[in-house]
Design a protein around this nucleic acid. Structure first.
Lengths: 196, 196
DNA sequence: TGTACATCAGTGAACGCGCGTTCACTGATGTAC
DNA sequence: TGTACATCAGTGAACGCGCGTTCACTGATGTAC
């Protein structure tokens, strides 16, 4: 039986909150240790470096999130508008319940030094979704890479604004309107356009 | 007559390029000095600190950009779709001609420690524009803070993806489709919605 | 015009704080016999 | 069951590199007389 790990979870929670608030680079190991009521050396019992810790946390929490998102987004029988609505709803719900974790994986982590997405990301899901719609003839062909980026930006930017305090209204309250607007965006983008 | 300033402009150019590529925190004064072929001490003849330099550059370059954007966006007689199209076009054009400067003021600078927008920002312009449309009865009332954030996100996210290399197609090539899609987004967002 | 002085953008070496990381040590738990 | 040993998450002090900033100095240009 493995020795009971007590403090790792505390360190993770404190690190994610700090990373989400101050950014990875401006968060020090002293910050984390203090917030988790742990010595600095304790970090190095679980991760080889601060940067590796950040990257591991990012991949792991993102995968957890994707696992929630993927199934309903790929219910083949459901119309696109519904699946998009589900995606928007799921994203904002996750933001509401896991504020810091969300800000970390979807906002802060944009500027990871690695400069790359992990294999799985809402952006990738969205691209696949759009490609499948086009392949199924339910959407005219278009540049899905750009379109997926637009939709993702339209969904996430209100979260950024809410989190930074520019807007008081929680995006989840505008969920239906936002889903509807994204659907209209997709349709309008495809009109009269040819793939590049 | 002021002594001719030769190196300040070099320092600014090098700093902006580095800030845009590595982020402000990860860019060192040694990086900047080396890129500008200048001693580190030279920075402190023009700015009191690295952070103040970054903030000054941000405000100044953003204002320059806004000055280009504002006039045509507020031509009262022009329909919204055209003004939106102009905005999209102007943004992507600026990105094309001033790659690093754009990435600095509109992408990197999102996570400034100050955690606030300067008074003038494309987001603010967009909000004002939408409010004016509603006041003029040409758009149904809605939550313009959220809507402006959506539109901004939809316009800027393709730029982020292009700059990070996720997408090869330059957003300017999809300019008309993106403008059209943003217009559709706005219209759909307002339908059946009441202001909050 | 020539001389003395002020100004200031620049240099390059040094400083010292803050940070990520290391390390010897501890004590609790698991395991072999 | 008791004893000896291995394991490992934790501590807290120390280390040392890298970074932002400082400082004495230089040399070119502007100004007073």
């Amino acid at each position: 039986m493995a020795r009971p790990v007590q403090k790792k979870a505390l360190i993770e929670k404190a690190a994610i909150k700090l990373f989400a608030s101050k950014g990875i680079v401006k968060t020090t190991t002293r910050d984390i240790a203090q917030a988790a009521s742990v010595s600095e050396g304790a970090l190095y019992r679980h991760w080889p470096s601060k940067d590796k810790m950040a990257w591991d946390l990012y991949c792991q929490r993102l995968e957890k999130f994707i696992t929630k998102l993927r199934p309903a987004m790929f219910e083949a029988a459901t119309p696109l508008a519904d699946r998009l609505g589900f995606m928007v709803e799921a994203i904002y719900k996750f933001y509401k319940t896991h504020n810091h974790e969300f800000a970390f994986i979807l906002l802060t982590a944009r500027n990871f030094p690695q400069n790359r997405y992990p294999q799985e990301h809402p952006y990738v899901l969205l691209s696949e979704l759009l490609d499948a719609e086009i392949a199924g003839g339910r959407l005219p062909p278009c540049n899905t890479a750009t379109l997926a980026a637009m939709v993702l930006g339209a969904i996430l930017e209100p979260v950024i604004h809410h989190r930074l305090g520019y807007s008081q209204a929680h995006p989840i309250d505008s969920g239906p309107a936002i889903g509807r607007a994204c659907m209209a965006l997709i349709v309008a983008f495809g009109q009269e356009d040819t793939p590049q």
